[in-house]
Computed example of a mutant assay.
Amino acid sequence: MIILGLDPGLAITGFGVIDCKGNRLKPISYGCIRTEAKLSLPVRLDKVFKEMEILINKYNPQEVAVESLFFNSNAKTVFAVGQARGVALLAMARAGLPVSDYTPLQVKQAVVGYGRADKLQVQNMVKTLLCLSEYPKPDDAADALAIAICHAHSRKMNRVGNEE
């Protein structure tokens, strides 16, 4: 099962692609889609959308996991992230891919076992669980891998719960 994890943002959208076979998780790819602040909003959103289509075509994921929108005190940032998340979701819908949402708390709980874990703890567990030789960089890519891992664990838990 190929899972695409996404940490959406307008300036940087992190992505992580993993292969989940039973209890084994294998990293396939990770990185970021970057847009330049000097570009207009429509051009930036178009780039995010087109890069999502490229990722879908390149890695052929069966499922997608996306971080839920996190509300902070800066409304302008929330709207920009929401728009980037929206075009990413549109790309997934057009490809017919099932999408699952996870809160930052759920991701940290699934990956570290503690919902208030810090970034370094998450990166360390991502490195360990995926047998990487170094921490995935940048943070957005590490977060996207963590989201994909969270989904892999959630799928297993849902399958076990449904078998009873």
Rank of each mutant, 00 (worst) to 15 (best):
E53V: 08
E164T: 11
K137T: 13
L41V: 08
V126R: 00
F79L: 15
P27W: 09
S29M: 06
T128N: 12
V43E: 15
I12R: 14
V112K: 01
A37K: 14
Q109L: 11
K108T: 05
P98C: 02
T128A: 14
A65E: 06
G115K: 04
D46K: 15
Q83A: 07
E36M: 13
G31A: 05
G31L: 04
T103W: 08
I147S: 00
N60F: 12
Y30K: 05
G115P: 00
V81L: 03
M92L: 11
R159F: 11
V78P: 03
L120A: 13
G82I: 05
L129E: 09
I149G: 01
A117I: 02
A88D: 04
E134G: 09
R155L: 15
Q109R: 14
N74T: 10
M52K: 01
A91D: 02
E36Y: 12
D118M: 08
M92W: 05
L39Y: 10
Y114R: 13
S100A: 12
K108H: 06
S29N: 13
A144R: 02
Q83H: 05
C20K: 13
V43N: 10
A110W: 01
D46N: 13
N124W: 04
I33N: 00
A11R: 14
A37H: 11
A37L: 10
V126L: 03
S29A: 15
G86I: 03
L132T: 02
K156C: 07
V64Q: 03
Q62T: 15
S133C: 03
